[in-house]
C-alpha cells in the first residue's frame, strides 16, 4: 500500500499549550480513515496543520511522498489536498452552480482566464453536472447558497472540496448539525465517494464512523492515543475509558 498523506513528528504549540503533540500519522492510498477523540483533543488543529491554515512548530507533512510542510494552503489544494470545514464555509451570495463552477475552473487553470465567459468550455460544464448529480444538488443549482437547507449546504461543502479533484479529502465533521431528515442523503453521498480518493474523516458521530471507516485513529490531548481497525478500536477498553470520562465531564 502506498501512503497518500503522512506526518512525521508534527508539533503545534500555542504559547504554553501543546495543541498537537508529536503526531506521526499515515493515511493509506484509498483509505477510509476516521480520526476521533473527545472535544478539544486537537483534531481541528491537526486538520488546519495539514491544510496549511496554520504553520507547525515542528515536524513535516508529506502528500504522496512529497513534502508540503511549508506550502501555502492554495498550493496544497492544487496538489490534491482538499478539505471541508466543520462549520459551513461557503459563498453565501453565490449559487451552488457558481460555487462548483468556480472550483472546477480554478482547478483546470481557468482562474487566470479573464477573457472567456465562465461556462464556455464543454469539459467544465460536464464536470459541474457530474458533481451536482453526485451530491444531489441538481434541484437547487440556482438558489442563493444562503437560502439552502442546512443539509444541502453541507452537501455543497463536500461538493466544492470534491470539485478540487483531491487525491486526499479531509472531512471535518460533515454530518454536524444536519437534521435527522436530511442526514441519510448526506451519509449516502459520503459513502459513495470514489475509492481512488483517500478520505480522512473527523467525526463525533460513532454511527457514521463505524459505518464508513475501515481504520480509526484516536486522538487525545493533541497526541495519537491509539490506532487500529474498527473492530480493534471499538472494543478497546482504553478508548472506552477516554470516551466515558469525557461524557461524565460533559
Amino acid at each position: 500500500m502506498t501512503i497518500a498523506l503522512e506526518t512525521k513528528g508534527l508539533v503545534k504549540r500555542f504559547g504554553g499549550l501543546v495543541a498537537t503533540d508529536n503526531v506521526s500519522f499515515k493515511l493509506e492510498q484509498g483509505a477510509r480513515h476516521a480520526l476521533i477523540g473527545p472535544n478539544g483533543a486537537g483534531k481541528t488543529t491537526f486538520i488546519n496543520l495539514l491544510t496549511g491554515v496554520i504553520k507547525p512548530t515542528a515536524g513535516q507533512i508529506f502528500l504522496e511522498g512529497q513534502e508540503i510542510t511549508g506550502l501555502r494552503p492554495e498550493l496544497r489544494v492544487q496538489r490534491g489536498l482538499a478539505r471541508t470545514f466543520q462549520i459551513n464555509q461557503l459563498f453565501p451570495a453565490m449559487t451552488p452552480l457558481e460555487t462548483i463552477g468556480l472550483a472546477v475552473s480554478e482547478r483546470t487553470g481557468g482562474g487566470h482566464d479573464w477573457w472567456r465567459v465562465t461556462g464556455s468550455k464543454r469539459e467544465i460544464i460536464d464536470e459541474i453536472v457530474e458533481i451536482a448529480q453526485r451530491f444531489r444538488l441538481t434541484d437547487v443549482l440556482d438558489e442563493r447558497t444562503s437560502n439552502l437547507a442546512y443539509g444541502k449546504q453541507r452537501l455543497l461543502e463536500i461538493a466544492v472540496a470534491f470539485a478540487c479533484k483531491p487525491r486526499v479529502l479531509l472531512l471535518d465533521e460533515p454530518a454536524a448539525g444536519v437534521p435527522e431528515a436530511e442526514r441519510h442523503e448526506l451519509l449516502a453521498t459520503v459513502a459513495a465517494l470514489p475509492r481512488d480518493v483517500s478520505v480522512l474523516l473527523i467525526e463525533h458521530d460513532m454511527d457514521l464512523v463505524f459505518s464508513f471507516a475501515d481504520r480509526i485513529s484516536v486522538m487525545v490531548n493533541g497526541a495519537l492515543f491509539t490506532e487500529g481497525t474498527v473492530e480493534q478500536v471499538s472494543t478497546d477498553p482504553k478508548v472506552r475509558a477516554v470516551y466515558l470520562g469525557e461524557s461524565v465531564d460533559e
Binding site: 451570495a93 475552473s105 465567459v117
Partner: peptide
C-alpha cells in the same frame, strides 16, 4: 469570466 467569479468568491 472565471477570474471575475473568483473575485466574487
Amino acid at each position: 469570466s472565471p477570474y471575475g467569479l473568483s473575485l466574487r468568491s
